[in-house]
Amino acid sequence: MEGKIRVLVAKPGLDGHDRGAKVVARALRDAGFEVVYTGLHQTPDQIAEAVIQEDVDVVGLSILSGAHNTLVPRVIELVKKKGGRQDLLYLVGGIVPREDVDYLRAAGVSEVFGPGTPTEDIVAYIRQHAKG
C-alpha cells in the first residue's frame, strides 16, 4: 500500500466523554496510521470540513450522548454534499443500542464498535477495509 492510512477521529455533538476517542486515536497512531483528532463539541459541518481538508480514508465518530441517529447520518450527508470522497470508511464508537446499529449501517456506517471492543479489533478492521 502507498503511504499511511489516514484516520480522522471526531467527537460530534455536545458530550465531552473523550476517553474512548482518545484511547482509540492513540491505539491507531501506535498501529502506524496517521491520526487527526478534532477535539470536542464538533458540529457535523465542522467534521465534514475536516474530513475533506485532511483528506482522510477513515472517519471514526465517537458519541456517548444518544444523539448518534441524528448526528452520524448528518456528517455522512454533508461530506457527500461538500464533494468528499465516496469510498470513505465510516466507523462509530460509543454507546449505541443494538436496534440503532442497522439504522446507522443503512446511513452508510461500516461498523459500530461498542463498549469493551479491543482496540486491536478496530485496527484490524481498518487494515482490512480502508482504501488508503
Binding site: 455536545l14 458530550d15 458540529t43 450522548s65 444518544g66 444523539a67 441517529n69 441524528t70 448526528l71
Partner: peptide, 18 residues
C-alpha cells in the same frame, strides 16, 4: 440533558438530537 449542561436552549441548532 446535554444542551442544558452546555447552556443552550432546546431550540438551538447545536441541541439537535440531544
Amino acid at each position: 440533558d446535554m444542551p442544558t449542561i452546555m447552556g443552550y436552549d432546546s431550540d438551538h441548532p447545536r441541541a439537535e438530537g440531544e
